[in-house]
Protein backbone atom coordinates (compact mmCIF):
# COMPACT_ATOMS: atom_id res chain seq x y z
CA UNK A 1 0.00 0.00 0.00
CA UNK A 2 1.19 3.45 -0.82
CA UNK A 3 1.27 5.26 2.52
CA UNK A 4 2.31 8.58 1.04
CA UNK A 5 -1.03 9.00 -0.59
CA UNK A 6 -3.11 7.75 2.31
CA UNK A 7 -4.55 10.91 3.94
CA UNK A 8 -5.30 9.13 7.20
CA UNK A 9 -1.69 8.14 7.83
CA UNK A 10 -0.42 11.51 6.75
CA UNK A 11 -2.66 13.27 9.25
CA UNK A 12 -1.57 10.94 12.03
CA UNK A 13 2.10 11.67 11.37
CA UNK A 14 1.38 15.37 11.36
CA UNK A 15 -0.28 15.37 14.77
CA UNK A 16 2.49 13.49 16.55
CA UNK A 17 4.14 15.64 19.20
CA UNK A 18 6.52 15.26 22.12
CA UNK A 19 5.26 15.28 25.70
CA UNK A 20 3.72 16.60 27.88
CA UNK A 21 0.40 15.56 26.44
CA UNK A 22 -1.81 16.45 29.38
CA UNK A 23 -1.97 20.12 30.31
CA UNK A 24 -3.03 21.11 33.83
CA UNK A 25 -4.39 24.42 32.60
CA UNK A 26 -1.96 26.36 34.86
CA UNK A 27 -0.48 29.47 33.32
CA UNK A 28 1.03 32.77 34.40
CA UNK A 29 -2.24 34.71 33.92
CA UNK A 30 -4.16 32.02 35.81
CA UNK A 31 -1.79 32.25 38.80
CA UNK A 32 -1.77 36.05 38.77
CA UNK A 33 -5.56 36.20 38.76
CA UNK A 34 -5.77 33.59 41.53
CA UNK A 35 -3.34 35.49 43.76
CA UNK A 36 -5.31 38.69 43.15
CA UNK A 37 -8.50 36.85 44.05
CA UNK A 38 -6.85 35.51 47.22
CA UNK A 39 -6.19 39.13 48.25
CA UNK A 40 -9.81 40.16 47.74
CA UNK A 41 -11.11 39.15 51.21
CA UNK A 42 -8.43 41.35 52.83
CA UNK A 43 -9.18 44.17 50.39
CA UNK A 44 -12.88 43.85 51.13
CA UNK A 45 -12.22 43.97 54.88
CA UNK A 46 -10.13 47.13 54.45
CA UNK A 47 -12.97 48.78 52.50
CA UNK A 48 -15.33 47.80 55.31
CA UNK A 49 -13.01 49.31 57.93
CA UNK A 50 -11.75 52.41 56.14
CA UNK A 51 -14.72 53.27 53.95
CA UNK A 52 -14.91 54.49 50.39
CA UNK A 53 -11.54 56.28 50.44
CA UNK A 54 -9.95 52.84 50.74
CA UNK A 55 -11.86 51.69 47.67
CA UNK A 56 -10.76 54.77 45.71
CA UNK A 57 -7.08 54.23 46.63
CA UNK A 58 -7.28 50.58 45.53
CA UNK A 59 -9.07 51.41 42.26
CA UNK A 60 -6.66 54.26 41.49
CA UNK A 61 -3.56 52.17 42.03
CA UNK A 62 -4.90 49.23 40.01
CA UNK A 63 -6.13 51.36 37.09
CA UNK A 64 -2.97 53.44 36.95
CA UNK A 65 -0.81 50.29 37.10
CA UNK A 66 -2.67 48.90 34.07
CA UNK A 67 -2.43 52.20 32.17
CA UNK A 68 1.29 52.58 32.87
CA UNK A 69 1.96 48.97 31.86
CA UNK A 70 0.19 49.46 28.53
CA UNK A 71 1.89 52.81 27.98
CA UNK A 72 5.38 51.50 28.73
CA UNK A 73 4.91 48.45 26.51
CA UNK A 74 3.58 50.59 23.67
CA UNK A 75 6.57 52.96 23.95
CA UNK A 76 8.99 50.04 24.00
CA UNK A 77 7.28 48.55 20.99
CA UNK A 78 6.59 45.35 22.90
CA UNK A 79 3.45 43.26 22.92
CA UNK A 80 0.89 44.68 25.32
CA UNK A 81 0.26 42.07 28.01
CA UNK A 82 -2.04 43.80 30.50
CA UNK A 83 -4.42 40.84 30.40
CA UNK A 84 -1.86 38.59 32.15
CA UNK A 85 -2.99 40.08 35.45
CA UNK A 86 0.49 40.97 36.73
CA UNK A 87 -0.11 44.73 36.52
CA UNK A 88 -3.39 44.32 38.37
CA UNK A 89 -1.69 42.31 41.11
CA UNK A 90 1.08 44.94 41.40
CA UNK A 91 -1.52 47.72 41.63
CA UNK A 92 -3.56 45.81 44.21
CA UNK A 93 -0.51 45.05 46.38
CA UNK A 94 0.68 48.66 46.18
CA UNK A 95 -2.76 49.93 47.17
CA UNK A 96 -2.88 47.55 50.12
CA UNK A 97 0.48 48.88 51.29
CA UNK A 98 -0.80 52.46 51.57
CA UNK A 99 -2.80 54.16 54.31
CA UNK A 100 -6.38 54.77 53.19
CA UNK A 101 -6.07 58.52 53.70
CA UNK A 102 -3.39 59.28 51.10
CA UNK A 103 -4.19 61.93 48.46
CA UNK A 104 -5.16 60.66 45.01
CA UNK A 105 -1.79 61.28 43.35
CA UNK A 106 0.19 58.99 45.68
CA UNK A 107 -1.14 55.68 44.30
CA UNK A 108 -0.65 57.03 40.77
CA UNK A 109 2.99 58.02 41.38
CA UNK A 110 3.60 54.75 43.22
CA UNK A 111 2.21 52.72 40.33
CA UNK A 112 4.37 54.64 37.84
CA UNK A 113 7.51 53.86 39.84
CA UNK A 114 6.45 50.26 40.38
CA UNK A 115 5.40 49.39 36.86
CA UNK A 116 7.59 51.56 34.64
CA UNK A 117 10.88 51.82 36.54
CA UNK A 118 10.93 48.59 38.52
CA UNK A 119 9.36 46.26 35.96
CA UNK A 120 9.19 47.49 32.37
CA UNK A 121 12.67 49.04 32.24
CA UNK A 122 14.05 45.64 33.21
CA UNK A 123 12.18 43.97 30.35
CA UNK A 124 8.79 43.29 31.90
CA UNK A 125 7.38 40.38 33.86
CA UNK A 126 9.98 37.79 34.76
CA UNK A 127 13.03 40.04 34.56
CA UNK A 128 12.55 42.49 37.42
CA UNK A 129 15.02 42.21 40.30
CA UNK A 130 12.87 43.96 42.91
CA UNK A 131 9.26 43.53 43.95
CA UNK A 132 7.52 46.36 42.05
CA UNK A 133 4.83 47.11 44.64
CA UNK A 134 7.40 47.35 47.44
CA UNK A 135 9.66 49.68 45.46
CA UNK A 136 6.57 51.82 44.84
CA UNK A 137 5.91 51.91 48.57
CA UNK A 138 9.56 52.61 49.50
CA UNK A 139 9.65 55.43 46.93
CA UNK A 140 6.49 57.01 48.35
CA UNK A 141 7.84 56.54 51.89
CA UNK A 142 10.99 58.47 50.97
CA UNK A 143 9.13 61.16 49.00
CA UNK A 144 5.96 61.74 51.03
CA UNK A 145 6.80 60.59 54.57
CA UNK A 146 4.00 62.62 56.19
CA UNK A 147 1.21 61.14 54.09
CA UNK A 148 2.71 57.69 54.35
CA UNK A 149 2.82 57.69 58.16
CA UNK A 150 -0.60 59.19 58.85
CA UNK A 151 -2.72 56.18 59.65
CA UNK A 152 -6.50 56.45 59.73
CA UNK A 153 -8.21 54.40 62.41
CA UNK A 154 -10.91 51.95 61.31
CA UNK A 155 -14.44 53.38 61.26
CA UNK A 156 -16.09 50.03 61.67
CA UNK A 157 -18.70 50.62 59.01
CA UNK A 158 -19.02 51.82 55.44
CA UNK A 159 -18.64 55.57 55.72
CA UNK A 160 -18.50 58.27 53.10
CA UNK A 161 -16.37 60.56 55.24
CA UNK A 162 -12.67 60.90 54.53
CA UNK A 163 -11.04 58.68 57.13
CA UNK A 164 -8.34 61.18 58.05
CA UNK A 165 -10.80 62.70 60.49
CA UNK A 166 -9.63 60.14 63.04
CA UNK A 167 -5.99 59.15 62.84
CA UNK A 168 -3.69 57.32 65.18
CA UNK A 169 -0.43 55.44 65.32
CA UNK A 170 -0.05 51.83 64.29
CA UNK A 171 0.52 49.31 67.10
CA UNK A 172 4.20 49.09 66.11
CA UNK A 173 4.42 52.89 66.09
CA UNK A 174 3.05 53.07 69.62
CA UNK A 175 5.41 50.25 70.66
CA UNK A 176 8.39 52.15 69.28
CA UNK A 177 7.47 55.58 70.66
CA UNK A 178 5.75 54.82 73.93
CA UNK A 179 6.50 51.24 74.86
CA UNK A 180 4.64 47.97 75.40
CA UNK A 181 2.74 49.01 78.53
CA UNK A 182 1.21 52.00 76.77
CA UNK A 183 0.19 49.83 73.81
CA UNK A 184 -1.47 47.34 76.14
CA UNK A 185 -3.47 50.14 77.80
CA UNK A 186 -5.30 50.72 74.49
CA UNK A 187 -6.91 47.32 74.81
CA UNK A 188 -9.03 45.64 77.47
CA UNK A 189 -6.54 42.84 78.04
CA UNK A 190 -3.62 41.12 76.39
CA UNK A 191 -6.01 38.55 74.98
CA UNK A 192 -8.25 41.32 73.63
CA UNK A 193 -5.22 42.90 71.95
CA UNK A 194 -4.41 39.70 70.05
CA UNK A 195 -8.04 39.30 68.94
CA UNK A 196 -8.26 42.91 67.78
CA UNK A 197 -4.99 42.59 65.89
CA UNK A 198 -6.18 39.38 64.25
CA UNK A 199 -9.43 41.01 63.15
CA UNK A 200 -7.59 44.08 61.92
CA UNK A 201 -9.36 46.62 64.10
CA UNK A 202 -6.39 48.96 64.31
CA UNK A 203 -4.53 51.67 62.45
CA UNK A 204 -2.29 50.64 59.60
CA UNK A 205 -1.92 50.25 55.88
CA UNK A 206 -5.12 49.02 54.28
CA UNK A 207 -4.06 45.52 53.44
CA UNK A 208 -2.02 44.72 56.50
CA UNK A 209 -4.75 45.04 59.10
CA UNK A 210 -7.09 42.20 58.26
CA UNK A 211 -4.87 39.31 59.31
CA UNK A 212 -7.75 36.77 59.33
CA UNK A 213 -8.66 37.61 55.74
CA UNK A 214 -5.00 37.52 54.68
CA UNK A 215 -4.50 34.10 56.27
CA UNK A 216 -7.65 32.86 54.55
CA UNK A 217 -6.26 33.92 51.14
CA UNK A 218 -2.82 32.55 51.96
CA UNK A 219 -4.29 29.19 52.98
CA UNK A 220 -6.04 28.94 49.62
CA UNK A 221 -2.78 29.69 47.76
CA UNK A 222 -0.92 27.10 49.85
CA UNK A 223 -3.65 24.56 49.13
CA UNK A 224 -3.41 25.24 45.39
CA UNK A 225 0.38 24.97 45.61
CA UNK A 226 0.99 28.43 44.16
CA UNK A 227 3.12 29.35 47.15
CA UNK A 228 5.14 27.06 49.39
CA UNK A 229 5.62 27.31 53.13
CA UNK A 230 9.42 27.78 52.99
CA UNK A 231 9.71 31.56 52.84
CA UNK A 232 6.61 32.65 54.84
CA UNK A 233 7.21 30.22 57.71
CA UNK A 234 10.95 30.90 58.08
CA UNK A 235 10.32 34.65 57.74
CA UNK A 236 7.60 34.85 60.40
CA UNK A 237 9.28 32.35 62.75
CA UNK A 238 12.59 34.24 62.58
CA UNK A 239 10.88 37.52 63.49
CA UNK A 240 9.00 35.87 66.38
CA UNK A 241 12.08 34.11 67.77
CA UNK A 242 14.33 37.18 67.53
CA UNK A 243 11.67 39.37 69.14
CA UNK A 244 11.30 36.90 72.00
CA UNK A 245 15.09 36.65 72.44
CA UNK A 246 15.35 40.43 72.77
CA UNK A 247 12.55 40.59 75.30
CA UNK A 248 9.59 41.49 73.12
CA UNK A 249 6.18 39.90 72.66
CA UNK A 250 6.45 37.32 69.85
CA UNK A 251 2.66 37.12 69.30
CA UNK A 252 2.46 40.88 68.93
CA UNK A 253 5.42 40.77 66.53
CA UNK A 254 3.66 38.22 64.33
CA UNK A 255 0.27 39.93 64.33
CA UNK A 256 1.34 43.54 63.87
CA UNK A 257 2.69 45.46 60.94
CA UNK A 258 2.80 44.09 57.43
CA UNK A 259 4.44 40.80 58.37
CA UNK A 260 1.62 38.48 57.25
CA UNK A 261 0.93 40.43 54.06
CA UNK A 262 4.63 40.65 53.24
CA UNK A 263 5.55 37.07 54.11
CA UNK A 264 2.70 35.35 52.25
CA UNK A 265 2.04 37.66 49.33
CA UNK A 266 5.23 39.59 48.60
CA UNK A 267 8.14 37.46 49.74
CA UNK A 268 6.68 34.62 47.64
CA UNK A 269 6.72 36.47 44.31
CA UNK A 270 8.14 33.97 41.80
CA UNK A 271 10.32 36.47 39.98
CA UNK A 272 12.15 38.22 42.77
CA UNK A 273 12.91 35.37 45.19
CA UNK A 274 15.27 32.39 44.80
CA UNK A 275 14.01 29.26 43.05
CA UNK A 276 15.61 26.53 45.13
CA UNK A 277 14.01 25.51 48.41
CA UNK A 278 17.22 25.74 50.45
CA UNK A 279 17.88 29.20 49.03
CA UNK A 280 14.29 30.16 49.91
CA UNK A 281 14.86 29.19 53.53
CA UNK A 282 17.96 31.40 53.56
CA UNK A 283 15.89 34.17 51.97
CA UNK A 284 13.19 33.91 54.65
CA UNK A 285 15.81 33.85 57.39
CA UNK A 286 17.45 37.00 56.00
CA UNK A 287 14.09 38.77 55.72
CA UNK A 288 13.27 37.88 59.32
CA UNK A 289 16.63 39.06 60.69
CA UNK A 290 16.45 42.40 58.85
CA UNK A 291 12.81 42.96 59.88
CA UNK A 292 13.59 42.29 63.54
CA UNK A 293 16.71 44.50 63.32
CA UNK A 294 14.76 47.45 61.86
CA UNK A 295 11.87 47.02 64.32
CA UNK A 296 14.17 46.83 67.33
CA UNK A 297 16.97 49.22 66.38
CA UNK A 298 15.96 51.20 63.32
CA UNK A 299 14.39 54.59 62.76
CA UNK A 300 11.22 53.15 61.25
CA UNK A 301 8.68 51.22 63.33
CA UNK A 302 8.20 48.61 60.58
CA UNK A 303 10.81 46.94 58.39
CA UNK A 304 9.06 44.21 56.40
CA UNK A 305 9.06 46.21 53.16
CA UNK A 306 12.77 47.08 53.38
CA UNK A 307 13.69 43.58 54.53
CA UNK A 308 12.12 42.00 51.45
CA UNK A 309 13.68 44.60 49.15
CA UNK A 310 17.12 44.08 50.70
CA UNK A 311 16.83 40.34 50.30
CA UNK A 312 15.67 40.84 46.69
CA UNK A 313 19.17 42.27 46.07
CA UNK A 314 20.61 38.95 47.24
CA UNK A 315 18.32 36.74 45.16
CA UNK A 316 20.70 36.26 42.19
CA UNK A 317 23.53 35.57 44.64
CA UNK A 318 21.47 33.04 46.63
CA UNK A 319 20.43 31.31 43.42
CA UNK A 320 24.12 31.00 42.54
CA UNK A 321 25.24 29.88 45.97
CA UNK A 322 22.67 27.09 46.33
CA UNK A 323 22.87 25.90 42.74
CA UNK A 324 22.91 22.12 42.60
CA UNK A 325 26.35 20.69 41.89
CA UNK A 326 26.74 18.90 38.61
CA UNK A 327 27.38 15.22 39.05
CA UNK A 328 31.10 14.64 39.50
CA UNK A 329 31.92 18.33 39.80
CA UNK A 330 35.02 18.88 41.92
CA UNK A 331 34.22 20.75 45.12
CA UNK A 332 37.68 22.27 45.34
CA UNK A 333 37.01 24.41 42.28
CA UNK A 334 35.06 27.04 44.18
Amino acid sequence: MDTEKNPQVEARVFRASVGPHISSGESVPHIMWTVSAALLPAAGLSIYYFGLPALSVLVLSIVSAIVFEALAQKLAGAKITISDGSAILTGLLLGMNLPASVPFYLPVIGSAVAVIITKQLFGGLGYNIFNPALIGRAFLMASFPRFMTTWPLPQGSLSLARPDAVTGATPLGILKEEGYRKLLSHFASRHDMYVQLLLGHRGGAMGETGIVALLFGAAYLLYKGYITWHIPVTFIATVAVLTAVFGGDPWLAMLSGGLVLGAFFMATDYVTVPQLKRAQVAFGLGCGIITALIRLEGGYPEGVCYAILLMNCFTPLLDRAFKAKKFGEASAKA
Binding site: I117, T118, I129, F130, I135, A138, F139, M141, A142, I290, L293, I294, E297, G298, G299, Y300, G303, C305, Y306, A307, L309, L310, N312, C313
Partner: peptide
Protein backbone atom coordinates in the same frame (compact mmCIF):
# COMPACT_ATOMS: atom_id res chain seq x y z
CA UNK B 1 19.57 49.15 39.90
CA UNK B 2 21.92 51.10 42.17
CA UNK B 3 19.21 53.67 42.83
CA UNK B 4 16.72 50.96 43.74
CA UNK B 5 19.22 49.22 46.06
CA UNK B 6 19.86 52.60 47.71
CA UNK B 7 16.08 52.91 48.21
CA UNK B 8 16.11 49.54 49.98
CA UNK B 9 19.06 50.62 52.17
CA UNK B 10 16.95 53.57 53.38
CA UNK B 11 15.37 51.01 55.70
CA UNK B 12 18.53 51.13 57.83
CA UNK B 13 18.32 54.89 58.29
CA UNK B 14 18.39 56.09 61.86
CA UNK B 15 20.13 52.99 63.16
Amino acid sequence: VTGLIALAFLGFSGM
